[in-house]
């Protein structure tokens, strides 16, 4: 999201309510842009402006609907009759652990996040997730110790915390997923052989001769070396 190349068209204004106060803002802009338009200086609740950092959670209602909706402020467009508020942060129980030192991360989950087992399958988290994650399944997979599946399900989680806002079992599914993801990487996956081989080769000084040769080259020789490495590509 970047500043407009042209001035907004004032003939296309919509009426919205920003944290309870009626405002007229241009059609076709995002909730965050509407807040800037209305004069809010944002510090909390603004981040990457690209839907990836999870800083700008919002809660909103649209015209003639009782449904309470959630979204990301940088990704949600304003519409006539919309009412929205920011949820830049929501208190969540965060467990403390040193991942590498855990002996049995599957068991440890129940000490660190005992509330993970309290899911009542209400599905509120799935309805609210702006990333479309199957949050509920990810919680159950964590509880059953299927951390690989948690990893698969939650790759796009930006920890906006909107699932925490809605969970009637008081858990933070995003933090539980992060725990399971890390546990999977640290305790269940083996480091790839090609990677450890390469680290070994470098540590053993296998490239020493080539470096020495490279470092003794003149600028001209080095340019030629790089240009022709590994072999010349076809040029026009």
């Amino acid at each position: 999201m970047s500043p407009a190349a042209t001035e907004p068209n004032p003939s296309q204004l919509v009426s919205v309510e920003i944290m309870g106060k009626p405002q007229r803002v241009p059609h076709g802009i995002t909730v965050l842009q509407a807040m800037w338009y209305a004069g809010h200086e944002l510090i909390r609740g603004v981040g990457c402006l690209g839907g990836t950092c999870g800083a700008c959670g919002i809660v909103y209602r649209t015209k003639d609907s009782f449904e309470l909706k959630n979204g990301l402020g940088c990704q949600t467009l304003v519409q006539e009759g919309m009412s929205f508020s920011m949820v830049p942060h929501f208190a969540a129980a965060r467990a403390s652990y040193i991942m590498a030192e855990l002996k049995d991360p599957k068991e440890a989950l129940f000490e660190l996040y005992p509330e993970a087992a309290r899911c009542v399958n209400c599905n509120a988290c799935n309805r609210v997730c702006p990333q479309g994650i199957d949050v509920r399944s990810s919680v159950w997979c964590a509880v059953f110790g299927n951390f690989d599946q948690v990893a698969e399900l939650t790759m796009s989680c930006n920890s906006c915390g909107l699932c925490v806002v809605r969970c009637p079992a008081d858990m933070a599914p995003n933090l539980i997923a992060l725990y399971a993801r890390r546990a999977h990487g640290v305790h269940e996956l083996k480091p790839p052989k090609r990677l450890t081989d390469r680290v070994g080769q470098i540590d053993a000084g296998s490239y020493g001769c080539e470096w020495t040769k490279l470092q003794s080259m003149s600028d001209q020789e080095l340019t030629a070396f790089c240009t022709n490495y590994p072999k010349p590509s076809t040029v026009k």
Partner: peptide, 9 residues
């Protein structure tokens, strides 16, 4: 490798 040991997937 360091990142993977921290759990980056």
């Amino acid at each position: 490798l360091w990142l993977m040991q921290l759990g980056v997937l």
